[in-house]
Design a protein around this nucleic acid. Structure first.
Lengths: 108, 108
DNA sequence: AATTATGTTTCTATATTTGGAAACTTTATT
DNA sequence: AATAAAGTTTCCAAATATAGAAACATAATT
């Protein structure tokens, strides 16, 4: 007879179990914080790719270097204004996609 | 000899002339406001596509219906929190794309 | 036309972000 | 190791977003 395999778990199963299922407050907060954290890391990576210091980027778009630091480290939230300005200065793109029926409406 | 053609102007030429060239404060503000306005319209379209009232959408994500109205009409700015929540509730997508050298880093 | 539902605006109060500046910590340079 | 540069954190003040609720305006229904 076949050997009994130890059960393995997917990452999703683990999150469901240890954080909470999708739709619960805990899971939603986790997903949100993760998204913000990745966003911060992306901004940092892009800034460094452009060889800019936080101070230079801040001066470029008119925000304090402290704000850039906080944004990159998800120390607090941010206004959409600041995000858009940062992406513009870094020549990066934000796409807002809305799927309507089978069509896409896209704002770049 | 050939008839002298009346000069025609592109949209970009018109914007350069009557608003200001890219990089000037006036032009940047114009581009930003346009982007915010389109964003608001997209959110409204998506919400209606989902057959939700502003009040329902607000309740869904935990913000006042007045905020939804203001957001849709660009009456004020918004926090990235609210934007992300709205897009999530509308099952829409925000993509933050950063082009690094020839690669893309993408956050959906 | 009257009534209801939905969307917009306004008020005050509270929460959050950002500015401005400085202190402090970490990392890089010499 | 000493110094400089870059990044982080903290203070208070100012600006802005949001809550909560109500008034008001517009659109939809009956």
């Amino acid at each position: 007879m076949a050997t009994k395999e130890p059960k393995t778990y997917t990452f999703t199963e683990m999150k469901d179990r240890y954080i909470g299922k999708v739709g619960t407050k805990e899971r939603d907060e986790y997903e949100y914080e993760l998204k913000m954290e990745v966003l911060g890391r992306m901004i940092k990576a892009a800034r460094q790719e452009r060889h800019l210091t936080q101070e230079e980027l801040g001066r470029l778009i008119g925000v304090q270097k402290a704000q850039i630091s906080k944004l990159e480290n998800s120390a607090n939230s941010a206004s959409i204004d600041t995000i858009i300005k940062v992406f513009k200065a870094l020549k990066a793109e934000i796409n807002f996609n809305v799927r309507l029926e089978n069509n896409f409406v896209k704002l770049t």
